[in-house]
Design a protein around this nucleic acid. Structure first.
Lengths: 337, 337
DNA sequence: TTGAAAGCGATACCAT
DNA sequence: ATGGTATCGCTTTCAA
């Protein structure tokens, strides 16, 4: 069905080598034959078989991208930026979306290695088992992580300042006068979750606000998960006056629970998100959130990987991007204050 | 760096063939040698090279997915569903995101063919040039389109009922008493754009509402594009009392323009979206929209492709999924009524 | 039950 | 300037 160099060689009455020279633009060939063969190749609709090429070159020009389901701040717009950057750099994107089901990351990494990808960009989640990623590095696959940190990984890692994010959100609420603040956070088995929580706790401690551990929860990463958790929190005896939510989209889920409970934002309850996702300024109530420079992070991540792929030796350092508080309408002083 | 069958054969003191038989679970091998070789392979961390395998089998187990930038209703959650379905079916996803820049689709298709993908799922946009897709089909690549129609394409196509979508939205506004309705639509060079517009016009005609062609616009597919267009419309002399927008996310952009103009929804102006994207119930004002069953469409699309890949002969028919109006708070009778 | 050899399509190197 | 040949890792077919 497809036409190969052999077909062209036969049709042109020359050897494979000659065809190759003509097509690859190498020297040592007469302009005449080159032109003739090029024309012939175009006419026969020749398309180099990248698979075969990969085999000889030991290089597939494939980069695996392991992303999270839609809700991450490193979600579609990030995938978009990554894909675009990789394509411009001459690579194709082999995409895998790995949720929270256990075993997915392992099998995805396995799949990537069997496909002999040259590099990998991974967005690790709170539940991501580190083992597979260490394995990738050991196998010599160039790896850069984005928006998540895997401990002791010998690879460049790009992330936002999660400590500051936690701190900023909490400090903002405290400053408004809130004392009963619920934290719907990232599980602390992950580095990101720990940093976030640490920032929150530090803000509380410095302001001498006691921490009610019952309000310090960890939620799964889904809009509905946040909705459920918020609903429980609201139904419980002493209702918090503010919610600090791990992510804007999760905050949207929490908003649903708040409205379902007949409460209003920010009059009855304040809410702070994380990520400053596209559209969170147009949420039911414009969301106060912490902005992570997602596109820049994605761009930097791709550039780093492309550099590594180009053979440059990049130190496996963690790059932390600064974050900033974006105050909108979902936060206000508590009723009592 | 990687271990091959040859390495194992050498280490085990047997031939390549034997190793292969052991690993591929074929008969004609003594249980003892099989066990021995399997253990050895595991120990040596053998991973079959899919690239090499593809070359011999003439089958890459790769499916190209051509998607649109983040805003489409066939966006991340759809990519997610598609990737998952393909993975479960034994295929890996080669992702390309093709925006409106001319030439992208062509080069993407070219890229896919060079990578010898077994199949393609394409989400065509209004600007997608049909030629490349016809070429794919001719080259024998299995193709299914999703959420968009390419004329005269010999491939199964999955789409929502765009005629009905246009009709439903327009009829709803007319019923509320609106007469000056602006249409921020999909360009009619595409089938989808034509169908949508036809539905809208039919609704107007049947209700004997005259159509003001100056309000019948075509917008590019972006949130900011919609914002700009809405801003112009609002600044013009006779302001429309309602907006019919091509997509929920574009509607969100339009909302920005409306608020920037100091107007309120739905008191000053009603707005209808399309897609019922996740979160449009939590927009600044919960959005009235037309729901497209995006996940089901994606699932059906993947199943169809997998069937074709399995060798089944599927008729190149267009499957149209039903849509429904979801009335929320962004629409109300006009002020004057 | 096991081994040997040809080939997939492209590349690199050596020979002419 | 052009042709020949080995090779990449695996699969398939045929021979022992």
């Amino acid at each position: 069905m497809d036409c190969t160099v052999n077909d062209i060689a036969r049709a042109a009455g020359v050897s494979r080598s000659t065809v190759l020279r003509a097509l690859s633009g190498k020297p040592d060939i007469s302009p005449k034959t080159r032109a003739r063969i090029k024309a012939l190749a175009a006419q026969m609709r020749y398309r180099p078989n990248y698979i075969a090429r990969s085999l000889t070159q030991g290089k597939t020009n494939l980069v695996g991208v392991i992303a999270k389901p839609s809700i991450y701040y490193a979600s579609h717009s990030v995938i978009e930026a990554v894909e675009r950057g990789l394509r411009d750099g001459g690579y194709s994107t082999l995409l895998f979306i790995s949720g929270n089901e256990s075993g997915t990351d392992e099998s995805v990494v396995e799949q990537l290695m069997k496909n002999r990808v040259d590099g990998v960009i991974a967005v690790p989640g709170a539940m991501t088992p580190p083992a597979s990623y260490h394995q990738l590095v050991e196998a010599g696959v160039k790896l850069v992580t984005l928006a998540g940190l895997i401990d002791d990984l010998a690879a460049p890692q790009i992330t936002g300042d999660n400590y500051k994010a936690g701190r900023l959100g909490a400090a903002h609420l405290i400053e408004l006068g809130h004392r009963r603040i619920a934290y719907l956070g990232i599980p602390q088995i992950s580095n990101v979750g720990r940093e976030r929580a640490r920032g929150v706790r530090d803000a509380f401690t410095e302001a001498h606000v006691p921490i009610d551990e019952r309000l310090f929860t960890e939620i799964e990463f889904s809009e509905t998960g946040a909705e459920r958790c918020a609903a429980e929190l609201l139904a419980s005896g002493e209702r918090p006056t503010a919610l600090l939510v791990r992510h804007d989209v999760a905050a949207r889920g929490a908003m649903r629970a708040i409205y379902a409970a007949g409460l209003s934002i920010p009059e009855d309850i304040s809410i702070v998100g994380n990520g400053d996702v596209v559209g969170s300024d147009m949420f039911r109530v414009p969301l106060t959130t912490v902005r992570f420079p997602a596109r820049q992070m994605a761009g930097f991540c791709v550039q780093t990987l492309l550099d590594m792929l180009r053979g440059e030796v990049i130190e496996p350092e963690t790059t932390i991007f600064d974050v900033e508080l974006v105050v909108r309408s979902s936060t206000a002083p508590p009723r009592t204050a």
